[in-house]
Computed example of a mutant assay.
Amino acid sequence: MSQSQVTHLPVAAGQVGRLSQALMAMVLGVFVIGMVGFSHIDVVHNAAHDVRHSNAFPCH
């Protein structure tokens, strides 16, 4: 029978993980809305526009 070792992370490490996930979600959102939504490349802009309409997100 093998022994396993469990390590418990401090509470602060869990909070850092949640904070980094929240920051990455915000960065992704800003990229999608800011860079893709306002892109001068028509194909990219139209694709983002169609996705917004299919998700019932107002864009006009």
Rank of each mutant, 00 (worst) to 15 (best):
M1V: 09
M1A: 10
M1S: 11
M1W: 11
S2Y: 14
Q3I: 01
Q3M: 01
S4R: 15
S4V: 15
S4K: 15
Q5G: 11
Q5L: 13
Q5Y: 14
Q5P: 00
T7I: 13
H8L: 15
L9A: 13
P10C: 11
P10G: 09
V11N: 10
V11E: 13
A12G: 09
A12S: 12
A12Y: 06
A12L: 12
A12P: 08
A13R: 09
A13S: 12
G14A: 07
Q15M: 13
Q15Y: 00
V16W: 08
V16F: 02
V16D: 10
R18E: 09
R18V: 10
R18M: 10
L19T: 12
L19I: 13
S20P: 04
S20C: 11
S20I: 07
S20T: 12
Q21C: 10
A22T: 07
A22W: 14
A22K: 09
A22D: 08
L23E: 15
L23K: 14
L23R: 14
M24S: 15
M24D: 15
M24W: 15
M24H: 15
M24Q: 15
M26E: 11
M26N: 05
V27K: 15
V27N: 15
V27A: 14
G29F: 07
G29P: 00
G29T: 02
V30D: 13
V30F: 14
V30N: 14
F31D: 07
V32C: 06
V32K: 08
V32E: 07
I33Q: 03
M35R: 11
V36Q: 05
V36E: 00
G37H: 05
G37A: 04
G37V: 06
F38C: 06
S39K: 06
I41T: 04
I41E: 07
I41V: 04
D42M: 07
D42T: 07
D42L: 01
D42N: 06
D42F: 09
V43K: 03
V43M: 00
V43H: 03
V44P: 02
V44E: 00
H45P: 07
H45D: 04
N46E: 07
N46Q: 00
A47I: 05
A47S: 09
H49C: 06
D50T: 09
D50L: 07
D50H: 01
V51N: 01
V51E: 05
R52T: 06
R52S: 00
R52A: 04
H53D: 06
H53R: 07
H53V: 00
S54L: 10
S54I: 02
N55P: 01
N55T: 10
A56D: 08
A56N: 01
F57Y: 02
F57D: 01
P58Y: 04
P58T: 06
C59P: 02
C59N: 12
C59H: 09
C59K: 13
